[in-house]
C-alpha cells in the first residue's frame, strides 16, 4: 500500500468553509435582529424614528470606520455563507459543471466583496 499522504493534495475548501462558517455564525447571532430592524421595524416606523432611514444618517453610518467594518463583514460574510450552501446544493442537484457553479456562487461572493470594499472607500470617511 502506498502511503496515504502521498498523491493526496490538500483541498482549498477550508478557505470557503471558514468564510461560510463565519457568515453562518454572524447571521445566526444577529441575522434575525438585522432583518427585523432594517427590513420591518425601520421601514414601518415601528419603535424606530423616520430619521433612522434618512440619507444623512445612513451616510454617517457608512462613513464611520466601525460602520464600514460592520457593513463589510455583514455583506461579504452573508454572501460567502449563501455561496457555499448554494454551491453544495447545486452540486447535489447536479445542476451544471462544477466550474460554472463555482463562478455563479463563489464568483458572485468574491465580486460583491470587492464591490463592497470599493463602495465603502468611495463613500469616504
Amino acid at each position: 500500500m502506498s502511503g496515504p499522504a502521498r498523491d493526496n493534495p490538500r483541498s482549498i475548501s477550508p478557505i470557503f468553509w471558514l468564510l461560510f462558517g463565519a457568515g453562518g455564525m454572524v447571521s445566526a447571532l444577529f441575522g434575525p435582529a438585522l432583518i427585523l430592524i432594517t427590513g420591518l421595524l425601520a421601514p414601518t416606523g415601528t419603535g424606530i424614528p423616520e430619521s433612522f432611514l434618512s440619507y444623512d444618517h445612513a451616510l454617517a453610518f457608512a462613513r464611520n470606520p466601525i460602520g464600514k467594518l460592520v457593513l463589510l463583514a455583514v455583506i461579504a460574510l452573508f454572501f460567502w455563507h449563501g455561496a457555499e450552501r448554494l454551491f453544495l446544493t447545486l452540486k447535489d442537484m447536479k445542476a451544471g459543471p462544477s466550474l460554472v457553479l463555482k463562478l455563479g456562487t463563489y464568483g458572485v461572493a468574491a465580486a460583491v466583496t470587492l464591490a463592497t470594499i470599493g463602495l465603502l472607500l468611495a463613500i469616504g470617511f
Binding site: 452573508f78 449563501g82 464591490a115
Partner: peptide
C-alpha cells in the same frame, strides 16, 4: 442559508 445571502444582497 441562501436567504442569508439574499438579505446580504438587500444591504448591498
Amino acid at each position: 442559508g441562501v436567504a442569508v445571502a439574499i438579505y446580504g444582497g438587500v444591504l448591498f
